[in-house]
Design a protein around this nucleic acid. Structure first.
Lengths: 343, 343
DNA sequence: TCTTTAAATATAAACGCTTACATTTTAATG
DNA sequence: CATTAAAATGTAAGCGTTTATATTTAAAGA
């Protein structure tokens, strides 16, 4: 077997507890013995066994990252890798490990979270999505297990720590941008309605219309998954309307890609025939034709902040529930155009 | 504290060992007591503590997934999430957990791997890249730690289990496709040269040229990271040549995106002015304009197979080194065009 | 020099599980 | 009905740490 604390102890002529204490760099050990023990560790090639340690201290120094269940489409959206990168950065700094979910469907995911929690696999969890009546979130609050959500909780908002953008305001801003450009027939294409983020962005869209005195048109509202195929479907639906929109507020860059593609099939050009605003500012959004006017929600920062909050929560037991709002910024590119100014 | 095996034992009036055996569904326990114990577990809400279990059995039922160090650019390429999805699928089926690397630079990553290995955090490792003189891979063989690589090892090829495509052949095929279309001025833009995959694809490209009797032109070969910005740089370099190429073999869809974008800035259209073949068949590749003719390397399957191989290796100690070649398929779309047939 | 106190280290009991081995119970055999 | 074998369960020793408590050693005070 591998070399243990006892081997080191023997070699350095001390008790195992002493070795343990020099690992923890306890001030109760004289610098002399510390040196001696460290030498022995080096010579033997000692490395602590985390399982044993975790068992003794009842923690795992690991955090679980839960992505939406529909792994099929979820992981395909660069949003997730990008938050993950943020989370990973602070995890690395603080020497936490990252456990990621693998569940394919809702049920599997739920089982997996239970395994993480009950099995003491992780000390805390980061939820990378937020939807209504989510069994997993309910479970976590029920169990009083430390977690933070990236996005806004659909309930218990004040008692759950979360990091989010001000999506209402962001959505209002882009809609206003479209209105400023003279558009009044503005469609909204968002993700599934059970996602809190969709709700918020729709709300912002509505507020902007209302403020501008533009009547709300139900036909202009479409909800679907975040994916390219759904984007296509959405376009089809809108373009066959009597009064097709001249602009659209989309809530995801990937979706926008699909929409623009579909538009072309219908013989329409963006932004000449239709203006588009988007969300996320994925690295793709500046590479598409046209480059997208999109809301930079600072995905990486969302990840950073989420992880930070969680770890704070883990370090001091009764850290209060926090809310951190990551600022957004609209990237004005070329997917929107002033109405009636066909040059 | 949480409910332990002893609590269950007491409640069910059996010895802890019996409970343990029930958990393992050992045939040595009568169905009667099994039932009784299971009932007790349910009533008490028992869940095994993995740390304790791992310590006892000296394993962790977890596999480590190592992505390239430059997390900045790496995770941005949907290739990685997609393999991860494959890996996750089989991990889930076999009840393994997934540990992912978080290291930002080479050194950090190396440290992390050591922590995984020495700390008994994972039972095996999947390397999601393969480059020359990789300290991590060397470390793993040195330690005789179970691992598989997705990609082809740069050395010890016969003693390391890996899953890969036949990249030489694939690259040859796409190059030939270009040649068939009448192109002779064909450039190659690949990732950094220390990546084995780049080597292979370049080799295929060269072979195709040679077979067709087309002289090798060093100016046509460009190496860089897999990213969009590097793609742009590459284009610039090629177009300012005396005899700029009429076609290019690119080794990554993301790069292709950048290239096409850049081409436009130079006033060139793909495929009218220049033909492009690509690799990976990311979901984007059919959404771009033009949709890319690209090699479908079946990323998801690479992940599936990689995980399968690793787990086989973990289950039976002396599983022989394997090589599994995932078949590729060229997706013919609209980014290539017959030379001189300007319609 | 003898206490008293502080500093340094050792002892041993957890942590929650698995498993080799021992023991008891049950069934089978002559 | 005793004997033996097989089946079912129990006992206890790990797995490699941490940590409360005890012990030893060294320094300080009287």
């Amino acid at each position: 077997m591998a070399v243990t604390i006892k081997d080191v102890a023997k070699k350095a002529n001390v008790a195992p507890s002493t070795v343990s204490r020099v690992i923890a760099d306890s001030p109760r050990i004289s610098t002399d013995t510390k040196k001696r023990v460290r030498k022995a560790m080096k010579e033997l090639g000692y490395h602590p066994n985390v399982n044993a340690r975790n068992l003794a201290v009842r923690s795992s120094k690991a955090i679980g990252v839960i992505m939406p269940s529909s792994a099929e489409t979820a992981l395909q959206n660069p949003f997730f890798p990008e938050v993950l990168r943020g989370v990973g950065t602070v995890a690395h700094e603080t020497e936490y490990s990252l456990y990621v979910s693998t569940g394919g469907n809702d049920q599997q995911l739920y089982e997996e979270v239970k395994r993480m929690v009950y099995g003491h696999r992780v000390d805390g969890i980061i939820l990378l999505y937020s939807r209504m009546n989510d069994a997993i979130m309910d479970f976590l609050v029920e169990e009083k297990f430390p977690f933070v959500v990236v996005g806004k909780p659909y309930e218990n908002e004040s008692s759950i720590t979360y990091v989010d953008n001000d999506n209402v305001s962001a959505s209002k801003d882009v809609t206003n941008h479209l209105i400023d450009f003279g558009h009044t027939a503005i469609a909204f294409i968002g993700g599934t309605t059970d996602l809190v983020v969709t709700k918020d962005r729709e709300l912002g869209y509505e507020q902007a219309l209302k403020d501008a005195g533009i009547p709300y048109n139900e036909d202009y509202i479409i909800h679907d998954e975040f994916s390219r195929s759904s984007g296509k479907k959405a376009v089809e639906q809108l373009l066959t309307l009597n009064h097709p929109p001249t602009a659209m507020v989309l809530t995801d860059d990937m979706m926008s890609l699909g929409v623009i593609n579909m538009l072309e099939e219908f013989g329409l050009e963006c932004p000449d025939d239709i203006s588009i605003t988007s969300f996320n500012n994925l690295y793709l959004s500046e590479i598409t034709r046209p480059p997208l006017t999109t809301v930079d929600i600072q995905i990486y920062k969302l990840g950073i902040q989420g992880a930070k909050c969680l770890i704070e929560q883990l370090q001091s037991k009764d850290e209060p529930a926090k809310r951190v709002i990551v600022p957004y910024a609209i990237k004005h590119r070329s997917s929107t155009k002033r109405l009636h100014s066909n040059d």
